[in-house]
Nucleic acid binder design. Structure first.
Lengths: 172, 172
DNA sequence: TTTTCCATGTAACTCGTTACATGATTTC
DNA sequence: GAAATCATGTAACGAGTTACATGGAAAA
């Protein structure tokens, strides 16, 4: 549902064809949203069938024709509905990496430390990568800064976990 | 993959039948892991076919027969492999709720505040609920405390966002 | 001239969920 | 006698991904 919301939200700002949308999402939203190309095309088709968006084919010279979408009145209503619902809802987060942590006692503390160092490096790299993302205007920037905030706290938490295992490693 | 890891990790501690496993996961892991019953049964079947676990049917009185699983030598190797991989890997987190936030400018600040208040209440309730979860022994407790830590920081972040919109609401 | 870019998709597949099915047994 | 618990699953569905397909135009 947040995928439709994203597409409508972007189309509302500027009528676009699928390729351009995909490009924008890949380039500027990669940090926070993963929406693959075929999924985007599929959703555009679906929303067009539902009458949320209308499509017009344009062609420039001999280039492949573009299907430019724009949000209809019905789509606008759906957008507002989904946006309000999304804002009012808290959706929980799962951490797949926690499962391993839960069983970390099954390995020697020293090996856990080595493995967690690897994890930490990946997390730090991700955080670093995020700082190179260009600024967005308005509220879109909130998404990036949330990611940043989250990764920073995750890093702090991981360091605290690592410290715990360091203690265990010493006493063994 | 973390689902298999979870099942193997639990079975390694104590041989169990599917029902008991599901019960444990529902009761004690609900906070952090959602693994539905049919999925668990399916994965147990799959892992048995792969030779990671062996099954023995037992029956007590006239009760429905139990299929008790235990981890094989091969399963133990897989477990160790997956555990190490999981510990060394950092997996990113997506926040579906951020999409709406990114488009929050499309609504009046006062309405955004109302909606975010709802979201905040749900988040606070979740955090409250989590504090009633019984303590786990050993590293398993890490999972719960991570959730707690994460929800607390999320709450702080959300409050900061709300504060931003309060400023906007005043100046309009 | 070969690669990359523009622009669209389809088909097959995986993973997981929901809803349903079964049947005995203890509890209310 | 009805409802919840024990114990196992199957079948159908949905959402999303990967890999593949197409074909012209611009850039290297």
């Amino acid at each position: 549902m947040e995928r439709e919301l994203l597409l409508l939200g972007l189309l509302r700002r500027e009528n676009m064809h699928g390729y351009k949308l995909n490009e924008f999402i890949e380039r500027d939203m990669a940090a926070c949203m993963d929406l693959k190309k075929p999924t985007a095309y599929f959703l555009l088709d679906k929303m067009a069938k539902q009458g949320w968006i209308s499509m017009q084919e344009t062609r420039e010279g001999n280039r492949p024709p573009r299907r430019v979408y724009k949000v209809t009145a019905k789509g606008e209503m759906e957008y507002q509905r989904m946006l309000r619902q999304n804002l009012a809802t808290f959706s929980e987060t799962k951490f797949p990496g926690d499962v391993g942590l839960g069983f970390a006692d099954d390995l020697a503390p020293n090996e856990v430390l080595l493995l967690l160092a690897e994890r930490r490096a990946a997390l730090a790299a991700r955080l670093d990568e995020l700082s190179t993302v260009p600024e967005h205007r308005g509220a879109l920037q909130l998404i990036v800064s949330h990611q940043q905030f989250h990764l920073e706290t995750e890093l702090r938490w991981l360091d605290q976990v690592i410290a715990q295992f360091k203690v265990k490693a010493k006493s063994s």
